[in-house]
Protein backbone atom coordinates (compact mmCIF):
# COMPACT_ATOMS: atom_id res chain seq x y z
CA UNK A 1 0.00 0.00 0.00
CA UNK A 2 2.73 2.36 1.02
CA UNK A 3 4.71 1.48 -2.06
CA UNK A 4 1.71 2.20 -4.23
CA UNK A 5 1.28 5.61 -2.65
CA UNK A 6 4.93 6.43 -3.16
CA UNK A 7 4.66 5.35 -6.73
CA UNK A 8 1.55 7.43 -7.30
CA UNK A 9 3.09 10.54 -5.75
CA UNK A 10 6.28 10.20 -7.75
CA UNK A 11 4.22 9.74 -10.89
CA UNK A 12 2.25 12.93 -10.24
CA UNK A 13 5.40 14.82 -9.48
CA UNK A 14 7.23 13.60 -12.57
CA UNK A 15 4.18 14.41 -14.70
CA UNK A 16 4.09 17.95 -13.38
CA UNK A 17 7.80 18.33 -13.96
CA UNK A 18 7.64 16.97 -17.49
CA UNK A 19 4.73 19.33 -18.32
CA UNK A 20 6.80 22.19 -17.02
CA UNK A 21 9.78 21.09 -19.12
CA UNK A 22 7.58 20.76 -22.14
CA UNK A 23 6.37 24.33 -21.67
CA UNK A 24 9.95 25.48 -21.25
CA UNK A 25 10.87 23.88 -24.59
CA UNK A 26 7.88 25.49 -26.28
CA UNK A 27 8.73 28.84 -24.77
CA UNK A 28 12.27 28.67 -26.10
CA UNK A 29 10.95 27.65 -29.51
CA UNK A 30 8.73 30.69 -29.53
CA UNK A 31 11.65 32.89 -28.57
CA UNK A 32 13.78 31.41 -31.36
CA UNK A 33 11.03 31.86 -33.95
CA UNK A 34 10.70 35.49 -32.90
CA UNK A 35 14.44 36.05 -33.18
CA UNK A 36 14.40 34.54 -36.66
CA UNK A 37 11.56 36.94 -37.53
CA UNK A 38 9.14 34.10 -38.00
CA UNK A 39 6.47 36.00 -36.14
CA UNK A 40 3.57 33.81 -37.26
CA UNK A 41 5.09 30.70 -35.67
CA UNK A 42 6.05 32.66 -32.59
CA UNK A 43 2.51 33.95 -32.25
CA UNK A 44 1.15 30.43 -32.58
CA UNK A 45 3.44 29.03 -29.90
CA UNK A 46 2.83 31.82 -27.44
CA UNK A 47 -0.89 31.55 -28.07
CA UNK A 48 -0.73 27.88 -27.05
CA UNK A 49 1.26 28.77 -23.97
CA UNK A 50 -1.14 31.54 -23.00
CA UNK A 51 -3.95 29.01 -23.15
CA UNK A 52 -2.07 26.86 -20.63
CA UNK A 53 -0.95 29.69 -18.38
CA UNK A 54 -3.48 32.40 -18.95
CA UNK A 55 -2.40 34.76 -16.17
CA UNK A 56 1.28 35.00 -16.96
CA UNK A 57 2.29 38.55 -17.74
CA UNK A 58 5.51 37.48 -19.51
CA UNK A 59 3.61 35.25 -21.94
CA UNK A 60 1.10 37.99 -22.69
CA UNK A 61 3.89 40.46 -23.20
CA UNK A 62 5.72 38.18 -25.61
CA UNK A 63 2.57 37.35 -27.53
CA UNK A 64 1.58 41.01 -27.76
CA UNK A 65 5.02 41.96 -28.98
CA UNK A 66 4.96 39.24 -31.63
CA UNK A 67 1.55 40.48 -32.77
CA UNK A 68 2.99 43.99 -32.87
CA UNK A 69 5.62 42.82 -35.32
CA UNK A 70 2.88 41.23 -37.41
CA UNK A 71 1.10 44.62 -37.42
CA UNK A 72 -1.96 43.10 -35.81
CA UNK A 73 -3.35 46.13 -34.01
CA UNK A 74 -6.20 44.70 -31.98
CA UNK A 75 -4.56 41.57 -30.64
CA UNK A 76 -1.26 43.25 -29.92
CA UNK A 77 -2.94 45.99 -27.87
CA UNK A 78 -5.04 43.41 -26.08
CA UNK A 79 -2.15 41.20 -24.98
CA UNK A 80 0.09 44.09 -24.00
CA UNK A 81 -2.72 45.64 -21.96
CA UNK A 82 -3.33 42.30 -20.32
CA UNK A 83 0.35 41.97 -19.50
CA UNK A 84 0.25 45.42 -17.91
CA UNK A 85 -2.83 44.46 -15.95
CA UNK A 86 -1.07 41.40 -14.55
CA UNK A 87 2.08 43.32 -13.83
CA UNK A 88 1.44 47.06 -13.57
CA UNK A 89 4.48 49.15 -14.21
CA UNK A 90 6.14 46.62 -16.48
CA UNK A 91 8.08 49.09 -18.59
CA UNK A 92 8.74 47.08 -21.81
CA UNK A 93 5.03 46.33 -22.08
CA UNK A 94 4.21 50.02 -21.68
CA UNK A 95 6.74 50.97 -24.38
CA UNK A 96 5.48 48.38 -26.84
CA UNK A 97 1.90 49.36 -26.13
CA UNK A 98 2.77 52.87 -27.25
CA UNK A 99 4.10 51.40 -30.47
CA UNK A 100 0.98 49.29 -30.90
CA UNK A 101 -1.23 52.33 -30.47
CA UNK A 102 0.55 53.97 -33.39
CA UNK A 103 -0.92 51.27 -35.63
CA UNK A 104 -4.44 52.42 -34.89
CA UNK A 105 -6.11 54.25 -37.73
CA UNK A 106 -7.84 56.76 -35.46
CA UNK A 107 -6.55 58.58 -32.41
CA UNK A 108 -8.87 58.41 -29.46
CA UNK A 109 -8.48 60.79 -26.58
CA UNK A 110 -9.91 60.80 -23.12
CA UNK A 111 -9.63 58.78 -19.96
CA UNK A 112 -11.50 55.73 -18.86
CA UNK A 113 -12.66 55.09 -15.31
CA UNK A 114 -10.32 53.05 -13.14
CA UNK A 115 -11.85 50.23 -11.10
CA UNK A 116 -11.24 50.37 -7.33
CA UNK A 117 -9.77 46.91 -7.27
CA UNK A 118 -7.02 48.06 -9.59
CA UNK A 119 -5.64 50.59 -7.11
CA UNK A 120 -5.62 48.03 -4.31
CA UNK A 121 -4.01 45.60 -6.71
CA UNK A 122 -1.13 47.88 -7.56
CA UNK A 123 -0.60 48.72 -3.87
CA UNK A 124 -0.34 45.08 -2.82
CA UNK A 125 1.26 43.74 -5.99
CA UNK A 126 4.68 43.41 -4.31
CA UNK A 127 3.53 39.90 -3.41
CA UNK A 128 1.74 37.52 -5.73
CA UNK A 129 -1.85 36.52 -4.82
CA UNK A 130 -0.72 33.03 -3.87
CA UNK A 131 2.07 34.41 -1.68
CA UNK A 132 -0.55 36.40 0.18
CA UNK A 133 -2.53 33.22 0.65
CA UNK A 134 0.52 31.39 2.01
CA UNK A 135 1.19 34.35 4.26
CA UNK A 136 -2.35 34.07 5.58
CA UNK A 137 -1.84 30.40 6.41
CA UNK A 138 1.62 30.98 7.92
CA UNK A 139 0.60 33.86 10.14
CA UNK A 140 -2.46 31.97 11.29
CA UNK A 141 -0.28 29.02 12.36
CA UNK A 142 2.11 31.39 14.13
CA UNK A 143 -0.73 33.20 15.83
CA UNK A 144 -2.07 29.95 17.25
CA UNK A 145 1.40 28.86 18.39
CA UNK A 146 1.96 32.16 20.14
CA UNK A 147 -1.43 31.89 21.81
CA UNK A 148 -0.49 28.44 23.11
CA UNK A 149 2.78 29.90 24.34
CA UNK A 150 0.77 32.53 26.16
CA UNK A 151 -1.27 29.83 27.83
CA UNK A 152 1.78 28.03 29.08
CA UNK A 153 3.74 31.07 30.18
CA UNK A 154 3.91 31.99 33.91
CA UNK A 155 5.42 35.43 33.73
CA UNK A 156 2.75 38.13 33.61
CA UNK A 157 4.75 40.47 31.32
CA UNK A 158 5.61 37.65 28.93
CA UNK A 159 1.98 36.66 28.90
CA UNK A 160 0.89 40.14 27.92
CA UNK A 161 3.48 40.33 25.16
CA UNK A 162 2.62 36.92 23.75
CA UNK A 163 -1.10 37.69 23.76
CA UNK A 164 -0.60 40.95 21.88
CA UNK A 165 1.64 39.23 19.34
CA UNK A 166 -0.91 36.54 18.78
CA UNK A 167 -3.70 39.03 18.12
CA UNK A 168 -1.45 40.98 15.75
CA UNK A 169 -0.63 37.82 13.79
CA UNK A 170 -4.30 36.96 13.59
CA UNK A 171 -5.05 40.36 12.09
CA UNK A 172 -2.19 39.92 9.62
CA UNK A 173 -3.54 36.54 8.59
CA UNK A 174 -7.08 37.76 8.00
CA UNK A 175 -5.77 40.83 6.19
CA UNK A 176 -3.56 38.76 3.88
CA UNK A 177 -6.49 36.53 3.08
CA UNK A 178 -8.63 39.46 1.96
CA UNK A 179 -5.74 40.96 -0.02
CA UNK A 180 -5.19 37.63 -1.78
CA UNK A 181 -8.89 37.45 -2.57
CA UNK A 182 -8.83 40.98 -4.00
CA UNK A 183 -5.76 40.31 -6.13
CA UNK A 184 -7.06 37.09 -7.63
CA UNK A 185 -10.57 38.52 -8.01
CA UNK A 186 -9.18 41.49 -9.88
CA UNK A 187 -7.14 39.30 -12.19
CA UNK A 188 -10.05 36.97 -12.91
CA UNK A 189 -12.64 39.65 -13.62
CA UNK A 190 -12.85 41.77 -16.76
CA UNK A 191 -12.87 45.53 -16.58
CA UNK A 192 -11.96 46.69 -20.06
CA UNK A 193 -12.54 45.64 -23.64
CA UNK A 194 -10.39 45.98 -26.75
CA UNK A 195 -12.25 46.12 -30.04
CA UNK A 196 -11.17 43.17 -32.15
CA UNK A 197 -12.23 44.17 -35.67
CA UNK A 198 -12.69 47.30 -37.68
CA UNK A 199 -16.17 48.65 -38.28
CA UNK A 200 -17.70 47.24 -35.14
CA UNK A 201 -20.96 49.00 -34.42
CA UNK A 202 -21.95 50.40 -31.06
CA UNK A 203 -25.67 49.89 -30.43
CA UNK A 204 -27.99 51.88 -28.24
CA UNK A 205 -29.62 48.74 -26.90
CA UNK A 206 -28.44 45.13 -26.63
CA UNK A 207 -30.28 43.99 -29.74
CA UNK A 208 -29.13 43.33 -33.29
CA UNK A 209 -31.77 45.68 -34.64
CA UNK A 210 -31.13 48.84 -32.75
CA UNK A 211 -30.04 52.38 -33.34
CA UNK A 212 -26.33 52.56 -34.09
CA UNK A 213 -24.57 55.00 -31.81
CA UNK A 214 -21.19 54.96 -33.49
CA UNK A 215 -18.68 52.81 -35.33
CA UNK A 216 -15.56 51.63 -33.55
CA UNK A 217 -12.08 50.96 -34.88
CA UNK A 218 -9.79 48.06 -34.18
CA UNK A 219 -7.77 48.51 -31.00
CA UNK A 220 -10.15 50.90 -29.26
CA UNK A 221 -10.24 50.51 -25.52
CA UNK A 222 -13.40 50.83 -23.47
CA UNK A 223 -14.58 50.32 -19.90
CA UNK A 224 -17.09 47.58 -19.12
CA UNK A 225 -20.19 48.88 -17.39
CA UNK A 226 -22.52 45.93 -17.64
CA UNK A 227 -22.51 42.46 -19.10
CA UNK A 228 -25.08 40.01 -20.42
CA UNK A 229 -24.60 36.68 -22.14
CA UNK A 230 -24.00 38.08 -25.59
CA UNK A 231 -23.67 41.79 -25.11
CA UNK A 232 -21.50 44.09 -23.12
CA UNK A 233 -22.23 47.69 -22.24
CA UNK A 234 -19.15 49.81 -22.61
CA UNK A 235 -18.03 53.35 -22.02
CA UNK A 236 -15.68 54.75 -24.65
CA UNK A 237 -12.87 57.19 -24.13
CA UNK A 238 -15.10 59.99 -25.35
CA UNK A 239 -17.68 58.96 -22.70
CA UNK A 240 -20.07 57.48 -25.27
CA UNK A 241 -21.97 54.57 -23.81
CA UNK A 242 -23.44 51.72 -25.82
CA UNK A 243 -23.64 48.00 -26.32
CA UNK A 244 -21.40 45.79 -28.46
CA UNK A 245 -21.62 42.12 -29.21
CA UNK A 246 -19.20 40.08 -27.14
CA UNK A 247 -17.67 38.24 -30.07
CA UNK A 248 -16.44 41.55 -31.47
CA UNK A 249 -14.39 42.44 -28.44
CA UNK A 250 -11.62 41.03 -26.28
CA UNK A 251 -12.22 41.43 -22.57
CA UNK A 252 -9.56 41.65 -19.91
Amino acid sequence: MKQLLVFFLSFCFSYAVSAQENNEVLFNKGMDAFNQKDYATSVKIFNDLVKIDSLNSVLHYNLGTAYLHMQNTGLSIYHLEKSLKLQPGYEPARINLNFAEKLKTKVTKGNLPIPQQQMLYSVFNFLKPNSWAYLAIGSMVLSVLVLIGYRFSQNATAKKLLFATSIFLLIVSIGSYFISENQSGYLLSNHYVIIKDTDVVLMQEPRTVSKITSTLTEGDKAFIKEETNQWVKIQLQNDTIGWVEKNNVLMY
Binding site: Q20, N62, T65, A93, I95, N98, P129, Y134, S184
Partner: peptide
Protein backbone atom coordinates in the same frame (compact mmCIF):
# COMPACT_ATOMS: atom_id res chain seq x y z
CA UNK B 1 5.70 57.76 -20.98
CA UNK B 2 7.29 60.33 -23.21
CA UNK B 3 10.77 59.40 -22.08
CA UNK B 4 9.88 55.80 -22.71
CA UNK B 5 8.57 56.46 -26.19
CA UNK B 6 11.96 57.69 -27.27
CA UNK B 7 13.26 54.19 -26.76
CA UNK B 8 13.33 51.36 -29.21
CA UNK B 9 10.67 48.77 -29.46
CA UNK B 10 11.34 46.31 -26.68
CA UNK B 11 12.34 42.72 -27.41
CA UNK B 12 10.74 39.68 -25.87
CA UNK B 13 11.23 38.75 -22.26
CA UNK B 14 13.22 35.52 -22.13
CA UNK B 15 12.96 34.76 -18.44
CA UNK B 16 9.73 33.17 -17.49
CA UNK B 17 8.33 32.28 -14.15
CA UNK B 18 5.58 29.75 -14.65
CA UNK B 19 2.43 30.39 -12.78
CA UNK B 20 0.25 27.62 -14.22
CA UNK B 21 -2.56 29.40 -12.97
CA UNK B 22 -4.72 28.61 -10.10
CA UNK B 23 -5.21 30.86 -7.15
CA UNK B 24 -5.03 28.79 -4.00
CA UNK B 25 -7.68 30.91 -2.31
CA UNK B 26 -9.99 29.51 -4.94
Amino acid sequence: AEVVSKQEMQPLNGSIEWFNGKFITQ
